[in-house]
Design a protein around this nucleic acid. Sequence first.
RNA 1: GAGGGUGUAGCUCAGUAGGUUAGAGCAUCAGAUUGUGGUUCUGAGGGUCGUGGGUUCGAAACCCAUCAUCCUCCCCA
Length: 458
Amino acid sequence: MIKPSLPQGTRDFAPQIVRRRQYILKTIASVFEVHGFQPLETPAMENLDTLLGKYGDEGDKLIFRILNNGLDNPAKRSQSLEAFEQVLNGQGSKSLTERALRYDLTIPFARYVAMNHGQLSFPFKRYQMQPVWRADRPQKGRYREFWQCDADVVGSASLLNEAELIQIYREAFRRLGISVDVRINNRKILAALAESCNASEKLTDITVAIDKLDKIGIDKVMEELEQRGLDAGNRERVRAYLLIDGSTDERLDRIEQLLGHTGSGRQGVQELRWLAGFLRTSEGSYPFSIDFTLARGLNYYTGTILEVKAIGVSMGSIGGGGRYDDLTGLFGVPGIPGVGISFGVDRIYDVMEETGAFPASLGVSTRALFFNLGEEETRYAWTAMLELRAAGIPCELYPEAVKFDRQFKYAEKKGIPAVVIAGSEEMSKGVFRVKILSSGTQTECGAEELETILSQAS
RNA sequence: GAGGGUGUAGCUCAGUAGGUUAGAGCAUCAGAUUGUGGUUCUGAGGGUCGUGGGUUCGAAACCCAUCAUCCUCCCCA
């Protein structure tokens, strides 16, 4: 016998947890739908080629690869050995692995758009809610299998799409009862910073370092920049960049002074200024802040970048996204811009668990348990249940004629609010005895009244 | 990839100057109570102390290894 266990970083979801997860998924999906997004699903596995090189070197290492079948085929022995040899030398090998589990939902979507751009009408707005897999080291809020909910708009360069996606964040988190801060930056500004340092090739080094500002402080960031080969003059330039503060408008003014001399800087500021202005003057208030230190690692972002953090909870980001001007270009279809966001369902769950944001009513759906009192009684109960179920009231009959104690405890544990008892006494009178468990009150009623009584039971 | 914590009953955990039969609460099951649950009372079952090796007269405890899990860094949702 083997001890049953789960692969690291994966989890089973008990009934109650599934209900809560479904509550999150349904809430997000309905927000997507009400904004005109359409559902899409893609396979759990993709060709390895589709995924490799899209997430950076680190990302490539975290992709779960699927071993090819038939490697033990004696006829292919030498081929398999050779393939393994290649892997040992740090090269990939198609004859060993050519498929992988998807790492996110954006690249599979890009692949889909590239394959179907002839049929799609643009702008194409899709949402997708499926699990993704990463060979990361599990820790708090980090799993190897987790769900993402993505919404992307492709085929439109309008910043109105950004505004709409932020509106989706606002509405979804409002409905879920999580207070959030949506941090916004623009990749062009980061690029302008690197450019103004005459170090465009160090864009990644610079962004990785400044992203850590609130974690390690400005001095450590400077140290790290030095290690990454940035000279003193440029470090001062980055320092000035990081020290920008004040109101949103003041900060936008200052960043323009600092980086407005570059084309990308001017453009980035302009985009941010428009977006911030739009969000402020449109209906309602939006929980966003401009944050020039926000970097985000994914290398395909080219414009706006977003990240969502829950306020008052120690947890990594619960959502993120950004604009990519040419995502499908990687798949041979250039010129389709897009912008998208992602919700991290598992982290949202953890946050809601921590803040007690789940509604109490997510318990059991069964409204009534019919007691099993024997063969004749079962037929009597069965008929009544058919009607209730047809009326949409979930109910169940205990499958065995065991003593009351057992049947009561079953209802109790499952959180069923009412039990229906119909034995020979009730049958002879043609009635049902309904007991509400929370209050202990019992009433006798006819079959037609059951529906009313049970739909009110709580 | 680097570092740290923890592995004892189904669950949460006690249990070391190494000592004979390893405990508690909760949960489960049975009975008090064959048509009335929750509360209460009585009783029962359930542990190769993660695994392997070592030290010792003797190891759940000390040492080494290994596995699992949690956490931190990196990176991310």
